[in-house]
């Protein structure tokens, strides 16, 4: 990207992009986590949670493993469809 882009802040700088992409791919490499496995994990998470909560859409779930100092952690972002007890 040209420096004009960076003056106007149109795109994230490529060094930052590289770091973010690497952080994700290194963790997946280390855990031998394939994209298919991630998709299956989302489906399974949705299935388990739907026993307790209004229906969860696996397509809305984001999962990522984050590297930490001592240990890594799995972060899942699971949007819930708004509902009240006794709705059904």
């Amino acid at each position: 990207m040209g420096f004009l882009d960076s003056i106007f802040g149109r795109r994230e700088r490529s060094g930052t992009v590289a770091k973010e992409r690497l952080a994700a791919v290194l963790v997946d490499d280390r855990y031998k986590l394939t994209p298919e496995m991630k998709e299956q994990m989302k489906i399974d998470i949705a299935e388990v949670l739907s026993r307790y909560l209004p229906s969860v859409d696996p397509d809305q779930i984001e999962v990522a493993i984050l590297r930490g100092e001592g240990s890594d952690k799995l972060q899942a972002d699971i949007p819930l469809r708004r509902g009240r007890a006794g709705d059904e």
């Binding site: 420096f3 960076s6 700088r13 490529s14 060094g15 930052t16 590289a18 770091k19 690497l22 952080a23 290194l26 590297r67």
Partner: peptide, 19 residues
């Protein structure tokens, strides 16, 4: 020069990734 422009991974970035 590329690192200072944010267009190359810095040594700190690499160290943080590889630990």
């Amino acid at each position: 020069r590329l690192v200072s422009r944010g267009e190359m991974l810095s040594v700190d970035d690499v160290l943080e990734l590889l630990m």
